[in-house]
Amino acid sequence: MKWTEISIHTTQEAVEPVSNILHEAGASGVVIEDPSDLVKSWDTSLGEIYQLNPDDYPEEGVIIKAYLSVTSFLGETVEEIKEAINSLLLYDIDLGYNTVTISEVNEEEWATAWKKYYKPVKISEKVTITPTWEEYEPVSTDELIIELDPGMAFGTGTHPTTVMCIQALEKTVHSGGYVLDIGTGSGVLSIAAAKLGAKKVDAFDLDEVAVKSAILNVKLNKEQEKVTVKQNNLLDHVEAQADVVVANLLSEIIIRFAGDVPRVLKPGGFFITSGIIQGKKQEVKQELITQGFSIEETLEMEDWVAFIARNNG
């Protein structure tokens, strides 16, 4: 079978929404070539770090690659992708160069090209994320292992916004707690919450592809007795009293539904938000305060921000 590689030269700010657009268009996974990875201080507690080749990375901006099967509808699909990416400008998302290039690859190249970017990563005190094809032995007795197959998921679970959410969950989830995961994507936050001791986790996503991916990842990690994944738009028709609500979404969406969160969150419960770029930090923070939350902690990683907010209602 022939495959087409679609490559988008954009910005770090646009990585999450562009990746989501590619998945919705039928991509099985994405490769993110971010030059900041070349100078990042990597955690070496897991052993030797694999060598990154500078020739694989752009001098500036970020390149996102995805693979689509060659069909008679490919031209229309590419145009729809371009249109969806351009529409991100309506949300004041910087698209940078915003250049799209297309090339053909054979099946063997497609099947292995992106795997070299994905290795086990320890992302918090307790949690390590590893791809399904990697053999990994825990380095401590309390280490929690999450297995992901990014070929069927939304990213690798190691993006700064996801990392900060898991670090925040580690601080707020208690044994027997109830967690709501809004915009679950790959389901990694729900899996983390379950492994951290939550008794019940409800995960919601509007995208049918994300729901299917999350269900598969939950089963892969043997957490289906705790985690329920459903297709749903944010908190529409949700009646709950959760201990923790976590949402890794665009800043604009967080602002839009923050006022609905206290309805489903116990007084004193925690609202974890991420997916926030530095330029939107104050706007999101002010909206949370306006809706009756107090900011307990602010986490920052690279150009991204996450809040741990307490419900004072």
Rank of each mutant, 00 (worst) to 15 (best):
E48K: 10
D56F: 05
K2N: 15
G61L: 06
H9F: 13
Y67G: 01
D55F: 03
I6N: 02
K40N: 02
H23K: 15
G61N: 04
V39W: 11
V39H: 12
V18C: 05
P58W: 05
S72E: 05
E80A: 08
E48F: 04
S36L: 13
A25P: 00
A27M: 09
E59H: 14
Y50E: 02
I64N: 08
G26N: 06
G61C: 06
E59W: 08
E79N: 07
D55K: 14
T4P: 01
T11L: 13
W42K: 11
D37E: 09
T44Y: 15
A14G: 06
I49W: 11
S28R: 12
A27I: 04
I49Y: 02
T4L: 12
E76F: 10
T77S: 12
V31R: 15
K65M: 02
D43W: 02
V39S: 09
G75K: 06
W42P: 01
T44C: 10
G29P: 12
G29F: 15
A66H: 11
P58C: 08
V18K: 09
N53G: 01
S28W: 09
A14T: 05
K82G: 08
K82T: 01
I63T: 09
I32A: 07
I81C: 07
T11H: 12
G61Y: 03
G29D: 13
S45P: 00
I81P: 05
V30F: 03
A27F: 04
N53H: 05
D37P: 00
L46T: 00
P17N: 05
E5H: 11
T77P: 06
V18T: 07
D43I: 00
L68R: 11
V62Q: 12
G61A: 07
Y50P: 00
S36C: 15
G26D: 08
G47L: 08
L46Q: 04
T11C: 11
N20C: 07
N53P: 10
D55Q: 13
S41K: 14
E13R: 14
V39P: 01
G29V: 08
P17V: 00
I6W: 09
S72W: 02
T44M: 13
I6P: 06
T10C: 14
T4K: 15
T11R: 13
F73G: 00
T71W: 01
E33Q: 10
E5Y: 13
A25I: 02
D34K: 06
I21E: 01
N53W: 06
T71F: 02
D34S: 03
G29C: 14
Q51W: 04
H23N: 15
D37T: 00
I21W: 07
